[in-house]
Simulated assay, not measured.
Amino acid sequence: MSLANVVSSGLKSAGGVKLFEEIVDLLGAKDLTEAGSRYLRLKLLETLVGEKWVRDIFTYFENPDLIESIAKPPAIPYHPRQLAGIYFKVMDKTVEASAYLGEEMGSEAIMEMISESMSSALESNYNAALQTILNVWRGCLPPDLSVAQTMGMRIDSVDTKYATSVLAPTSALPYTILEALTQGANNRLQQLYTNLDNAYGELIAQKNALMRSFLTAFSEFYLTLINDLVFDSIYFVERVENYANTA
């Protein structure tokens, strides 16, 4: 029996179809067909709706009043009803994309991207709103030791009871608070006497420069005097010798 007959009889049998599918999968023809189909559907989507269809998704985020014109709350950028409208607009775009590209690509191309960006944006916006409400409008964050250092810089003008009420919520050990107060007082002293120290240093430098110039001038005068004395002595000795020789 020839090879063609064997293959033909194998394909006619019950396992022939399965064998054929395995061969097609092995050769990658199925993946190639699906990739080509997705590419054609993508080009169809691009041709029919264009890039404006994609830009419309972000237009609702930029201007939520297109969905419903509502005064936004003071602490968050969107009204909850506008967020609900944006959600349904995104879902509409996802369903439309799924109709062209298939469910997997439609959801991955839009919902995955939007969910990541929404997660980051909502986290920053709503977290900031909650922190504003709880920490700024109501105030619940306890002070740290930097408050003690700041208070130490003006400790002579701070009431004792006021200082205690501010420093006690830090929950630090008493000697730790004392160290912070001492550091603050030391910083204040450094600020007060820094100019004086600089002026004193400049005065000492000027005094040293004056003394060096005086000593330099005196040493030059002394050397000149010694040289003149030596030359005069030599001249006197020479004159005495000349007088003795001529006498």
Results as ranks from 00 to 15, higher is better:
P73A: 05
R41V: 03
V24Q: 08
N127D: 08
K52Y: 07
S119Y: 13
L83I: 06
M91L: 13
P73C: 06
E46M: 14
G36H: 04
Y78D: 00
T47H: 06
Y87P: 00
A75E: 07
G16F: 06
F58N: 07
I133K: 03
A109Y: 05
A75V: 12
I67M: 06
S107G: 09
A71Q: 14
E46A: 12
L45A: 03
L27F: 13
G15A: 13
S117A: 15
W137A: 11
I76Q: 06
M111S: 04
E21D: 11
I110W: 01
T132L: 15
T94V: 12
N63Y: 05
E96C: 06
L40F: 11
E34V: 11
K89T: 01
M105N: 04
S119D: 10
N63H: 09
S69F: 05
A99K: 09
E51I: 03
E68A: 06
E104A: 13
S124W: 14
A29I: 13
E108D: 08
I110R: 02
S107Q: 12
I23F: 10
K18E: 13
A75Q: 07
V24G: 02
R81E: 08
I86Y: 07
A84Q: 12
G28R: 01
K12Q: 14
I114A: 06
E123K: 14
L130H: 05
M113H: 13
L27D: 07
I67Y: 08
S119P: 01
G28Y: 02
A109H: 03
R38L: 12
K12R: 14
I70K: 03
K43E: 09
W137N: 08
D65M: 09
I76G: 01
Q131K: 15
G85N: 03
A14H: 09
G16H: 05
G85H: 03
M91C: 06
W53D: 02
A71T: 12
I76S: 07
G10S: 09
E34C: 00
K52I: 02
E22W: 11
G106D: 04
W137Y: 10
A75M: 11
P77Q: 02
R38T: 02
S115E: 10
L45Q: 01
S37Q: 11
S117Y: 06
S107F: 14
V90M: 13
F58R: 09
E112N: 11
I67A: 08
K18W: 12
F88N: 02
V90T: 09
S115L: 12
L27P: 00
L83N: 02
F88L: 09
M91S: 11
R55C: 03
V24N: 08
A35M: 09
I133F: 10
E108V: 12
V49F: 04
K30H: 03
S115N: 14
L32P: 00
K18D: 15
Y126N: 05
N125K: 09
F20E: 07
V24L: 13
A14F: 11
V95D: 05
L19Q: 05
I67E: 01
